[in-house]
Design a binder for these strands. Structure first.
Length: 349
DNA sequence: AAGGCGGGGCG
DNA sequence: CGCCCAGCCTT
């Protein structure tokens, strides 16, 4: 069989422990194996069992998750670990249907855990499976339409080997990831070349079909990097809906367009931010905006260094959310902020 | 049914 | 540059 010859030796392939499988599957949602692998190793070391994961803090989990993206996965991971540890005596649900009720666990993840850990016959349908099935069977139904999702799930469910469902699922995904690749698949040496409809019809490059409707929004961020003479700065946690929920960042002034210093000081949010401080000087750190690209937003970002006058500490004013500069690296921050911290000499300790 | 949610790697 | 990645949740 193709899988046995080509499978990669991945750490979660040597276990049926639902905790480890669950952790790996959550991490690999919309994430390449190569990107998720180091995170998986670090998580397993820090949290060997669900007990350690459930009894730590959300901040610690987010810090370890930093850079992997889709941070709701980390928050749901923590919520689910707590639920399982506290409400279920640390015992995972042991079938597909119950797994589906867990936060952050959808059809794919529930099928993966159920098939791998409990030998339940549930077919996974991830990006790899969509690609392989759409090509081999020549299916043009958009994979992200309601009809497509149903059609591919039932087809996969027909094909799955009931004796080794977990192995079957991992094999078809591995085949999609390693052989039936999105670009330039090696159809010449493919084990399905005799029956692949897409190959016969010369449609490999056009399958799978996907409806796409991504509008990219431009946003303009101005981060106010506060520096007090005591060697402290200010970080705030993002608590609102939207990107980077629960992560930390410098006080943010969002504007409708790029602004200069005069314009920035007229912005309401800037005045709210600076109200508690006595800003002595405000210096633009990067003339050219850093463009941080998310899949759905482009963030044009400038950092402003705000040095506080001595009065702040003489008066003993307590500054909200202030932290020693040496502790900045303890906080979970977006990559955009992490890059700045790494670049800014004051933070290099 | 549609939109929001990260970051990185590849051609 | 655009595309896609072991998807899920909210509206």
């Amino acid at each position: 069989m193709w899988y046995l010859q080509h499978k990669r030796d991945l750490p979660w392939r040597n276990t049926k422990d639902p905790y480890r499988i669950w952790l790996s599957e959550i991490m690999l949602q919309q994430t390449r194996v190569a990107q998720g692998l180091p995170y998986y190793e670090r998580f397993l070391k820090a949290f060997p069992t669900i007990k350690e994961l459930a009894t730590t803090s959300e901040d610690k989990i987010l810090k370890l998750w930093q850079g992997l993206g889709y941070y709701s996965r980390a928050r749901n991971l923590y919520a689910t670990a707590n639920y399982i540890w506290n409400e279920r005596n640390g015992k995972f649900p042991s079938n597909y249907k119950e797994l589906l009720t867990l936060k952050g666990v959808g059809d794919y993840t529930a099928s993966a855990i159920a098939s791998i850990c409990y030998d339940e016959k549930q077919a996974v349908v991830d990006g790899n499976v969509y690609r392989v099935l759409s090509r081999v069977f020549g299916i043009s139904t958009p994979i992200n339409s309601t009809a497509g999702i149903k059609e591919f799930k039932s087809l996969a469910q027909l094909l799955i080997d009931g004796r080794q469902p977990g192995t079957y699922n991992q094999a078809i995904m591995e085949f999609g990831a390693r052989h039936c690749t999105p670009q330039n698949p090696d159809c010449g040496s493919c084990i399905f070349s005799d029956r692949c409809i897409a190959l016969k019809k010369d449609m490999v490059g056009q399958l799978p079909v996907k409806i796409k409707k991504l509008k990219i929004k431009k946003r303009y961020f101005n981060y106010i990097v506060i520096l007090s003479e005591e060697g402290k700065t200010v970080l705030k946690q993002r608590t609102k809906k939207g990107i980077w929920q629960q992560l930390y960042e410098f006080p943010l002034v969002e504007t409708e367009a790029e602004v200069d210093e005069i314009e920035l000081k007229e912005i309401q949010t800037f005045n709210e931010v600076s109200e508690g401080y006595n800003i002595e000087s405000l210096v633009l750190y990067n003339e050219a905006s850093v463009v941080h690209k998310l899949s759905h937003q482009h963030l044009y970002t400038r950092f402003w260094i705000a040095t506080l006058s001595e009065e702040n500490q003489k008066n003993g004013n307590r500054i909200e959310n202030e932290i020693p500069i040496a502790r900045v690296r303890d906080y979970a921050v977006p990559v955009l902020i992490e890059n700045f911290i790494s670049d800014f000499s004051v933070f290099k300790i």
